[in-house]
Design a protein around this nucleic acid. Sequence first.
DNA 1: GGGTGATGCTGAG
DNA 2: TCAGCCTCACCCC
Length: 268
Amino acid sequence: MPEGHSILRYARRQHELLAGQEVMAASPQGRFQGGAARISGRELLEVDAHGKHLFYHWHRAETLHVHLGLYGKFRTFKTDPPPPTPATRLTLSTERVTVYLAGPTVCELITPSQEEAIRARLGPDPLQAGSDGNTLAEFASNLKRRQVPIGAAILDQKVIAGIGNIYRTEILFLTGINPATRANELELGKVEELWRCSVDLLARGVAAGKIVTVPRTPLGRSNETDRLYAYKRERFPCRLCGGSISKADMANRAIWWCESCQPGRAVY
DNA sequence: GGGTGATGCTGAG
DNA sequence: TCAGCCTCACCCC
């Protein structure tokens, strides 16, 4: 489930479990053998996230950069790890903890200047709101420079980092913005709402460990569509007005919205 | 056990 | 704009 909230959770969990220790690394699949050998046995100093990117800093080794993409998955074991599957790209282990990584889009060692370049091309991260470069002002100025629909703009990691397809649908629903509205035509008040909504929802996602946008959802038994307002809900009535939820493609991905709660320009 | 879809992104054309 | 990457969970038989 790799949108920004899960990436930050991975960063925190792995930092807590592995930082300050010498970590053994290997690549059962073989595609990261050389890289794993270069970090194996080094002390892990810090695990840090920006948007959907993870950065691992080591004592006297290059930075490990991981991006899960659509398929990538981590698995963590505190006792008796099962043998890694042949597809496991990277294993990180100490005496007490084992982490398996499979299917990432990116798993590579990078120099400090390469890390800087990656961070520089990412937009502000709502989960680091207020810190340097992660502000409403940056977000607003990024939107001002784009004429694409807002539904496409907020999926662009250069505009805002960490938003994925579920959050883009839910955030536009909750702020009542039609996905087809041009990014540069959005009034400042709406831009502020978008930013605050992103900050709130992602923080809730971090706390809950899953994307929850409908208040007071009983987490235990809920399935995905119970927790959301619009994502994949084209067969359900709108939770707010009872009208129908529309679906279309935007920026190569499906998007859902309610015509009457998100009035404005039609998507087609 | 097979088929399908997925919360992402890149690079060719 | 679209195919391709790459893995696994889930659904249906």
